[in-house]
Design a protein around this nucleic acid. Structure first.
Lengths: 121, 121
DNA sequence: TATTTTCATCGTAAAATTACGATGAACGAT
DNA sequence: ATCGTTCATCGTAATTTTACGATGAAAATA
């Protein structure tokens, strides 16, 4: 059973038992959270929000990381759907992906509502 | 320069240059996001939200993971401040940590506002 | 006291993440 | 056509994460 098959199975049943794995929303939110699980990637999102869009070189210049490393972080953000990249001559213009941001907002809002104002034992 | 020194340095300056690292809020949000970066830990938070509190054994029973693995996930959630654990005889009662949840809500809300409604290049 | 239950920790293996230099491809400029 | 710039990718090393069986500590129970 590969990842796709497992995901599909989970989606079809919409239940979670001992032998099942996790729900689609849990999987997706964890993916998006993983994209935020490094300060450099958060810094990148903030830069793109401030400047609305940004060529790759500017991002590299502002981060304390090598160009190859920043490129790797950008790739992760793009793969998970939080940013987009558009080739502009020899440069690449990155910007926020509204759809991915909205998806993250929704999934987090859902979890946030569940965990709001709970009292401990 | 160890982690504490680096964090203190970053906090003192509150600026980010090529030779500096990341801002405290970026570091902290990435830590909290990392705690959400696994579907099992999200499932745990949801369980604790539903039942308000939960003994460790119930969590283990509902997750498709071994007891040792679940205990490790619980430890990570506790270390980052999202849950608390209280010893109750031979069992341990886990519950959400309101402070940690609130901190995550605040940090995410801040980032969310920045990235809201941006248009791509 | 001996036994059972509950859970954390240890040890360890496999996989993923992080980081960087080196290389190469694509493009504009000379 | 050649050169410099820009950026992705490759290869690789170090670290971290994930997972589980085995073990041990603590408490209730027999």
């Amino acid at each position: 059973m590969n990842d796709l098959e497992r995901k599909t199975f989970t989606q079809n049943t919409m239940t979670r038992t001992k032998n099942d794995l996790f729900l689609p929303d849990e999987m997706r939110l964890s993916e998006l959270a993983k994209a935020l699980a490094h300060p450099a990637r958060i810094a990148i999102l903030k830069m793109l929000a401030e400047k609305n869009s940004c060529i790759c070189g500017e991002i590299v210049d502002e981060l304390p990381l090598a160009q190859a490393t920043v490129s790797q972080h950008l790739k992760e953000l793009k793969n998970v759907g939080l940013i987009k990249g558009e080739i502009d001559g020899p440069k690449v213009c990155y910007c926020l992906n509204t759809d991915g941001i909205a998806e993250l907002r929704g999934l987090w809002a859902n979890l946030e509502q569940r965990v709001a104002a709970k009292i401990c034992c």
